[in-house]
């Protein structure tokens, strides 16, 4: 199977659609449900909830993959040389993995 972009293209659209819903939910929760006024204990309680943990992990992985692939697309637009593209790809993947690990540790180990 020879494909250079169709699956990534589909993934980008699907993750974009899911992210749109998640971002709206995140926005409503953070700005209209009183969380901005709540204390550490409230945040702690929310982040201890397995459902919120799942929400956050999906949000984290889709946000990072969507953003990372978007960056890779920009590199493809502007970057001509293969070596520069490889360096950019390594940088994007490394940054993505680092941020994902950081998020993973935060979400999974956060409990009351």
């Amino acid at each position: 199977m020879k494909t250079t972009g169709s699956w990534w293209w589909l993934l980008q659209r699907l993750s974009g659609a899911v992210l749109l819903v998640l971002i709206m939910a995140h926005f409503v929760v953070m700005h209209y449900m009183g969380f901005e006024k709540r204390l550490y204990a409230d945040v702690l309680a929310r982040l201890s909830n397995p459902l919120w943990k799942t929400f956050d992990l999906i949000f984290l992985s889709l946000g990072l993959s969507h953003g990372g692939y978007g960056l890779w697309g920009i590199v493809g637009d502007y970057c001509r040389s293969d070596s520069a593209r490889i360096i950019a790809l390594i940088a994007i993947v490394t940054a993505g993995l680092f941020l994902f690990s950081l998020g993973l540790v935060t979400v999974l180990t956060f409990h009351s």
Binding site: K2, T3, T4, G5, W8, W9, G73, G76, D77
Partner: peptide, 14 residues
């Protein structure tokens, strides 16, 4: 389709 499914093909369209 293989010719247009290329690094400098379809997917560069924004």
């Amino acid at each position: 389709l293989e010719l247009v499914d290329d690094r400098n093909g379809l997917w560069r369209c924004r």
